[in-house]
Amino acid sequence: MDMGSLLHQFIQQMINGISLGSIYALIALGYTMIYGIIKLINFAHGDIYMVGAYLGFIATTYLGFGFLPAIIFAMLGAGLAGIIIERVAYRPMRNAPRIAILITAIGVSFFLEYTMMLIASPQPRTFPAIFEATVYHLGPLVVNSQQILILVSALVLMVALSYIVNKTKAGMAMRAVSFDADAAQLMGINVDKTISLTFALGSALAAAGGVLVGIYYNSIDPLMGMMPGMKAFIAAVLGGIGIIPGAMAGGLILGVVEALVSGFISSTFRDAASFAILILILLYKPTGLLGKNVREKV
């Protein structure tokens, strides 16, 4: 392979990686927010993404919604589901040992997967084509309008999230609860409400990811959340779990690494590379790329 085609390969794989990475980032955001606020690795998060995809499917197929109403419908629905899950499954466990609540999360994950299988059957569903994919050729490079849609939607949502977290009162409350829940409560912040809001926001982002994946890959099924959920978890840890910009960066880096490994080494090593990253990060920088070393008070 000569240099020119090598470069073009590289850029093409970057494009592939960024569009995949922005999905990981959207899911990773929810992981990181929920971890940040109640120190829970919400293993059901990947399944919320699946629920979001199904809500988008219902909105487009049965209700005849267009892209924007469908994604908003899915985000609202999944946000509500997130609030309910927190209320029913996690809130009663808030003072239980960490491991108990972690197992509850796995239980919720199975509950969502198999309930969806019961309702919607394990067969994959075909997402209606609400966006005709236009293919743009930039010289030797190929970009698809849906890839652009994913990237733009992800960026808009991330900007909106940053605004909510950094500039609004609710966001300030979230940061306060995450920093010190007891002190926040003493300052008059309604901790329960704030946690509910965090679940709603995180779940809504995952749902948006689900709908985008549905549109882009054209098919959804009840177990679609397992692998992306795991990858998003790696992305969140990579960026520094609990840190919002870290999740965005982690998601994009992971997507690009996967594409480059598949493209220049071998696709057989793709998942191995992802999990190797997780192991290396946990060994050498457990706080993640953007994490600060916080000493725990003893």
């Binding site: 392979m1 085609s5 390969q9 093409q12 794989q13 592939n16 990686g17 995949l20 994946v213 890959y217 098919s219 177990l223 679609m224 397992m226 692998m227 992306p228 996967e258 594409a259 480059l260 490994v261 598949s262 493209g263 220049f264 071998s266 696709s267 057989t268 793709r270 998942d271």
Partner: peptide
């Protein structure tokens, strides 16, 4: 090139194959 069951994105492998 290889993939795993339940994978959804094959563009990286396909781009390599195309090359």
């Amino acid at each position: 090139e290889a993939f795993l069951a339940k994978d959804i994105d094959f563009k990286a492998a396909l781009t390599k194959i195309k090359a």
